[in-house]
């Protein structure tokens, strides 16, 4: 069972519908017990960094413990950004700190938010991105992650090259929304369920 963390943010029905569509057993939950019992954890998220961290406070330890034990984790959009140390969106607020680095405002020159369908620039082999070539994925964000170290599996071009996929051990995260990216997005979720079974 995949636990989709409900922390009062965003559109959870879409992500659970998407997992149902590919035949995966997923449950929207805020219970630590359910997260502990799950085979994998999904952290969705839209909204602001600061308010998300505030709402995640209760689940913080549970998430860190489960990831520490090696459980597959998928962060989506803001669920990617909160993995880092901090964000310009909410100065002074501490992220989960699982991936060193910062989240910065998308620089002027292009429209913000980066909203719509964009392609990936693949940086290295990744099981999550297996089969991805020139497909488009749906992005909507005003901030972008700048992680340190060799953790970026794919970027996307929006005037500047921005982080699109972070992977570090059992942590996987996409800046785009696989649950809103048509069949290409469902393939990413299928790849994630493949990682869970492996």
């Amino acid at each position: 069972m995949i636990a989709i963390i409900d922390y009062g943010s965003g559109n959870l029905r879409s992500i659970s519908n998407a997992f149902r569509r590919i035949g995966a057993d997923a449950l929207v939950t805020s219970s630590s017990k359910t997260m502990d019992e799950a085979d994998a954890i999904v952290l969705p998220g839209v909204g602001a960094f600061g308010s998300a961290m505030e709402k995640l406070e209760e689940s913080r330890e549970t998430i860190l413990e489960n990831i520490g034990e090696g459980k597959p984790f998928l962060g989506i959009c803001l669920g990617l950004q909160v993995l880092l140390d901090e964000s310009q969106e909410s100065p002074g607020v501490r992220g989960l700190g699982l991936v060193p680095g910062r989240v910065l405002r998308i620089p002027p020159g292009n429209k913000v938010p980066h909203m719509g369908w964009n392609q990936l620039i693949i940086k290295r082999d990744s099981q999550l991105l297996d089969g991805v070539d020139d497909e488009y994925f749906y992005f909507v964000h005003s901030y972008h992650a700048e992680p340190e170290g060799d953790v970026v599996s794919a970027t996307t071009d929006y005037g500047i090259e921005m982080t699109a996929v972070i992977e570090k051990d059992n942590i996987h995260a996409t800046q785009f929304h696989p649950e809103k990216s048509g069949e290409a997005g469902l393939d990413i979720l299928r790849n994630f369920t493949g990682i869970i079974k492996a």
């Binding site: 879409s14 519908n17 749906y138 909507v140």
Partner: peptide
Amino acid sequence: IEATTENVFVP
């Protein structure tokens, strides 16, 4: 909306 989003995976 509920019925649509069961099978439609775009915004």
